[in-house]
Nucleic acid binder design. Sequence first.
RNA 1: GGACACUUAGCUCAGUUGGCUAGAGCGUCUCAUUUACACUGAGAAGGUCGGGGGUUCAAGUCCCUCAGUGUCCACCA
Length: 711
Amino acid sequence: MDKTHHTDYEGKLYSSWEKEGLFTANPNSEKPPYSLLMPPPNLTGELHLGHAMQHAILDAIARIKRMQEFDVLLLPGVDHAGIQFEGTLDRILAKEGLSKQKLGREKWLERAWKFKEEVYQSFHKAWTVIGLSADWPKEVFTLEPKVEKAVFEQFKRFWDQDLLYKGAYIVQWCPKCGTAIEDIEMEYEERKQKLYYINYPIQDSESAYITIATTRPETIYADTGIAISLNHPRFKKYLDKKAINPLTKDSIPIFEDKRVEPEFGTGALKITPGHDPLDYEIGKNHNLPILHAIDKTGRTTELAQELAGMKIEGARELAAKKLEELGAIEKIEDYTHAVPVCERCKTTVEPLISEEWFVKMQPLAEKGILNIGQINFYPTNYKKILTDWMENIHDWSISRSLWWGHRIPVWYCQKCNPQNKVGKNKEMLISLEKPEKPCKTGHSHYWIQDEQVLDTWFSSGLWPLSTLGWPEKTKELERYFPWDFEISAGEIKYLWIARMIMLSLWHTDTIPFKHMFFHGMLRDLQGRKFSKSLGNGIDPQELIKTWGTDATRMALYTYSAPGRDGRTSKSVMDNRCKNFRNFGNKLRNIAKFVIELKPENSSKKISVKNKDDQWILKELHSTIEQVTKNIEKFELHLATEELYNFVWHKFADIYIEKSKSRRPEAQSCLTLVLDSILRLLHPFMPFLTEELWTKMGKEESITLAPWPTKT
RNA sequence: GGACACUUAGCUCAGUUGGCUAGAGCGUCUCAUUUACACUGAGAAGGUCGGGGGUUCAAGUCCCUCAGUGUCCACCA
């Protein structure tokens, strides 16, 4: 008997399905539509276990809906993943001795597109391995013209609706990625640091001073004020005086502010509006000047005098040493706190003032909150989580200082554009292409495009619409939108899911999807995330190679309960896969028994009187009912468990054993049950079921077989 | 500091609206010895469902509380 199930075989089967167009949606179909939107994986990311599970879930639902006679669209796509892709490419270029500066924007982009193609090719193969029945010819890439048009439309609408603004604000800046990032793109890392208590002398006073606590003495060069908590017992008396910046010797104002915590440190705070979000706010209220001691590359500026040009860490030490020499340090404490780092490169994020584009999110969030109830969430509590977030929405900083992405479709007249301020009256245009009409200077070639590109999520957030050709009123948009099913990891609920909800509602008054499924995150046995740096990852392709696609899928469904994280390891996965490999073997042997060892004189009809026949048919019907019900609730872990139990412990262990004594009579019942089993299992174990389906003498693919119903 | 989860057998997890002696897989132990299938079959051991309190005829499930774990959010210098 066959004991192994080679992926070669699965590969061939998959190609034949694809060739026959079994995964192709047909907008002209008479059947009702059912649409599933595949989350576009990052162009640079590898296929990990979480993806495999996500795809296995998507695929099972797509296959079931096909069998239930829906016209199914499972639309695949890839995200250009701005920051991440650009970082990867730049590392490769660096090894070749090349750089952005050396290549220039145009050459760099040429290179980027070439690299994109390379990555794309290897990528595609990894996906098909899990058996995903996606409509590949319709695949969308987030930088292709269709999406570009949608992104432009969105930008233009926001501009016309007065929801866009540009200006210099304090943003979170990643010096390594060289761009602004959003709060939700940051992580926090516990770091051991020093808390320096520093004395700022009071002007015109012999010995009086205010002590503040800071972890960042290097930013003192950019201090422009001292804020103390309300009614500060010790420092209140200095309120009408000025303090002296111990490093620059500038005199800076002292004032009260309720945002200063009396309990923390000394209850006094140095205000550095250029390098801290809170200081920025406080500084703005007190009209403090904004100075920069650190630039966008993470080095100290001229302001830092003899420390200029240093990296932050070095500058910090030297600044501390200098203060020490000046006798300005009261004490130094060890201090562990959470330092914000860039989610992607783990570099410490530097708050800086930068010129960026923003979207006013308040009206979009309000609409989102109002309509989110129309979406069914699995698990249900995500509705509250997303609502809470929208209720506390911040404006969205959408510009990134990158080259890989949708370039901001704004053109400035070179001669008349003041660098820092953009308002509607300034000479500028919103246009995808270079404007043909001349600007004030009278020459069309004076138009220059904004240097920045849009945040990746600005296009990903439009994914439910852009993939279907919006803003055109396409047949596909009409038919498949809103999407019936969307799936995601909880991780990107704000970055992606909340944005899709707000943007779809804003542009079309329609929710983007009817059923939103959040799968849990797979972790290692200690509960840690899988990550490259920990080296604890499990390669799904390796599991597939060892145990086959079907077994790997079945193992993954056991972890697919909505929103539940799962702990696992290579050996736990191997155990589970092995179990389902055995299950596949069991099924194969059942089929052999029923089909190949069929007796000559077998019955053509089911014996209505036989108790065993009646029993197994009753069990079958109850299984059909349970499985169908569980699938409708997207509880695939229950559906597969039910099937496993029926096939192995009821059909094989009991019914088949008993049938041996009355084999010819039982034959038609055996065949009927096997027929239903294969159809019920097909969404979960597509390859084996197709193979056995053919063995049963069926001519059409099981993909097209109707889903069993209780009759 | 807020929010949301989770805690069930040695391990990894199920357990739908409260309802028979709490389930699965792996692991452990006993038996069967070539069967459609050893990638097998029959059986066993193993749980006071995190602790405590409450509601109920009935609680793993609902409510309160305590403890532990995890995730997300928040400007604590």
